[in-house]
Simulated assay, not measured.
Amino acid sequence: MPVYTVHAPSASGADVRAADGFIFVRDGFHLWAAILGVVWLAWHRLWIAMIGWIALMAAIDVAMVQLRLGASTIFIVDALLALLLGFEASSLRRWTFSRRNWRQLDVVVADDLEAAERRFFERWSTRQRGPGSGPPVDRGAPPPVRDSRGQSFANPPPLPAGGIIGLFPEPGGQR
């Protein structure tokens, strides 16, 4: 099941009015980030990551050309770097949100984005109401305490005759 992190801008706070601004970031591999790295970074407005990605790719490609590596080797290295971007795309988004002073509110596990939103807002709305605002819960009788006299569990059971607990009934016995 996919894991989503929920982020909110810290300036507006995490109240009901700011709920439209919450962003859900799916953790895992992002295919479009691997295929169209620079376009995906620009689409998600990850400007510093995009500049760093372009500089990294240019430096590695120039270094490989200077080392006179073959075209197939350059292609394999570029493909591996694209896979790395695909795997780390959600981490780059979370890093950008933290840099912009967004808060991570929660982590949600769900099948899709809609189910993740539903789960998050169910939990979040109960937390917003507070613990005493829900329906009363019957918890039954209070738990037993150990120091009550007359309770069967208040006194521990007696030790065996030799005072030894375990597999060896007598001190120095056969092992």
Rank of each mutant, 00 (worst) to 15 (best):
P2G: 06
S152I: 10
F153Q: 08
V16M: 08
P157H: 04
P171N: 05
P156A: 15
V3M: 09
V65S: 09
A110Q: 04
V6W: 01
R119A: 10
W40K: 03
A63L: 14
V16P: 01
I51R: 08
T96C: 06
S133P: 00
A42V: 12
R94K: 15
F24W: 04
L31D: 03
A116Y: 01
M57R: 13
F97T: 00
F22W: 05
P157Y: 05
Q128D: 01
F87N: 02
P142Q: 06
D15A: 09
I164G: 00
Y4P: 01
A55C: 11
L159F: 11
N155C: 01
W53M: 08
V39A: 15
P2R: 06
V77F: 08
A110L: 05
F153T: 08
P160H: 11
S90V: 01
G130L: 09
A82N: 09
T73N: 03
I165M: 14
A116E: 02
L159K: 07
G21F: 11
L159Y: 09
R45S: 11
F87K: 02
D111N: 11
G86A: 12
G140H: 10
P160R: 12
G86Y: 07
H30I: 00
S125A: 14
V145I: 06
M50T: 07
F120A: 06
G28V: 03
P136C: 03
A154W: 06
L67W: 14
R100I: 03
E88I: 01
A63N: 10
D112S: 02
